[in-house]
Amino acid sequence: MSNTSGALYILSAPSGAGKTSLVKALLAQDDQVCVSVSHTTRAIRQGEQDGVDYNFVGQEDFSRLVDQQQMLEYATVFENSYGTSRQWVQTSLEQGQDVILEIDWQGRDQVLAIFPHAVAITILPPSQVALQKRLQGRGTDSDVIIARRMAEAHKEISQYGGSQYLVINDDFNQALADLQCIFTCRRLKTPQQAVNHHQLLVELLSTGD
């Protein structure tokens, strides 16, 4: 693990753009990255695990965390509340771990106000038709919910300019490579490399006997 602090990455995308699948693939090949597990008030779904997929809490507990300013960002989506633990993120970064937040554009803007050096990335589908097909292909939502998600997607997409990077998820492998490139480039910056390769730099700059 690096001796420098980790970097904070914010990934935003409309529902159905493939963000979760891309993050899962990224984690499988990059052990320097972890994903923040959000708190939510929504009911746990079949196959989900508390503390792994989400930290499932009641509305009263969620409101208390907000009142105590323990949430880095929070929002209400489809009548359910979601939020990110401020302490967990700060501790992970201090331990040198890169942290991914999977949040919407509003959460992104909240976090950037606190962590202006965070790296914001928006992931978009190749077309509206492709997005709708992906949502329908899940087989988990009614036509009414899909219509709501498409409307929300338009709002999310319209805010792409708030991110420093834009990844189009048309070909999955290419999108994954693009995403990994963003992480790699940040790690190659001089301050990070100067710490990681301190001994090498000392030797290279040595004038000898």
Results as ranks from 00 to 15, higher is better:
residue 72 L to H: 07
residue 94 E to H: 11
residue 158 S to C: 08
residue 47 G to W: 07
residue 188 L to S: 01
residue 39 H to D: 12
residue 30 D to W: 03
residue 78 F to H: 13
residue 109 D to N: 11
residue 187 R to D: 00
residue 25 A to G: 12
residue 138 R to P: 08
residue 42 R to W: 10
residue 110 Q to L: 05
residue 141 D to V: 00
residue 129 V to N: 13
residue 52 V to R: 05
residue 11 L to T: 04
residue 187 R to F: 01
residue 128 Q to P: 06
residue 203 E to D: 09
residue 12 S to T: 12
residue 105 W to F: 12
residue 13 A to L: 09
residue 180 Q to K: 08
residue 207 T to M: 12
residue 79 E to Y: 13
residue 42 R to E: 06
residue 136 Q to F: 05
residue 203 E to I: 05
residue 138 R to Q: 05
residue 2 S to T: 13
residue 92 S to A: 15
residue 32 Q to S: 08
residue 84 T to P: 14
residue 123 I to N: 06
residue 109 D to Q: 11
residue 181 C to R: 01
residue 53 D to P: 02
residue 99 V to W: 04
residue 70 Q to M: 11
residue 131 L to K: 02
residue 166 L to C: 11
residue 50 D to Y: 04
residue 102 E to D: 14
residue 85 S to M: 07
residue 176 L to G: 10
residue 43 A to H: 06
residue 142 S to Q: 03
residue 197 H to P: 06
residue 200 L to Q: 14
residue 28 A to D: 13
residue 13 A to S: 14
residue 193 Q to L: 03
residue 27 L to H: 01
residue 122 T to H: 00
residue 158 S to Y: 08
residue 104 D to S: 10
residue 127 S to Y: 02
residue 208 G to S: 12
residue 139 G to M: 06
residue 127 S to I: 03
residue 199 Q to G: 02
residue 25 A to I: 11
residue 136 Q to N: 12
residue 117 H to K: 12
residue 182 I to W: 10
residue 199 Q to R: 09
residue 110 Q to D: 13
residue 96 G to Q: 07
residue 75 A to S: 15
residue 43 A to C: 08
residue 19 K to H: 04
residue 172 F to G: 04
residue 138 R to D: 08
residue 86 R to F: 15
residue 6 G to Y: 05
residue 83 G to K: 07
residue 32 Q to T: 11
residue 142 S to M: 04
residue 23 V to Q: 04
residue 145 I to Q: 15
residue 209 D to Q: 11
residue 103 I to H: 02
residue 75 A to R: 11
residue 171 D to P: 00
residue 176 L to Q: 09
residue 37 V to M: 08
residue 21 S to H: 06
residue 151 A to M: 05
residue 131 L to A: 00
residue 62 F to V: 07
residue 48 E to I: 05
residue 53 D to E: 09
residue 31 D to L: 03
residue 169 N to P: 05
residue 155 K to Y: 14
residue 142 S to A: 03
residue 200 L to S: 12
residue 102 E to I: 08
residue 91 T to G: 09
residue 185 C to A: 07
residue 81 S to I: 06
residue 205 L to Y: 09
residue 149 R to W: 01
residue 61 D to Y: 14
residue 122 T to A: 01
residue 65 L to A: 15
residue 134 R to S: 05
residue 61 D to G: 13
residue 121 I to E: 12
residue 173 N to M: 05
residue 200 L to T: 15
residue 116 P to A: 14
residue 164 Q to G: 13
residue 99 V to L: 02
residue 144 V to N: 15
residue 96 G to V: 06
residue 99 V to Y: 04
residue 193 Q to N: 05
residue 86 R to Q: 13
residue 122 T to D: 01
residue 4 T to W: 00
residue 2 S to I: 10
residue 144 V to E: 15
residue 165 Y to E: 00
residue 14 P to V: 10
residue 15 S to C: 07
residue 140 T to C: 09
residue 106 Q to H: 13
residue 155 K to C: 11
residue 6 G to K: 03
residue 96 G to Y: 08
residue 168 I to L: 06
residue 13 A to T: 08
residue 36 S to W: 01
residue 39 H to L: 13
residue 16 G to V: 00
residue 107 G to N: 12
residue 26 L to P: 04
residue 47 G to D: 01
residue 62 F to N: 03
residue 13 A to R: 05
residue 109 D to C: 07
residue 110 Q to H: 10
residue 183 F to S: 08
residue 98 D to M: 00
residue 140 T to N: 05
residue 6 G to A: 06
residue 59 Q to P: 13
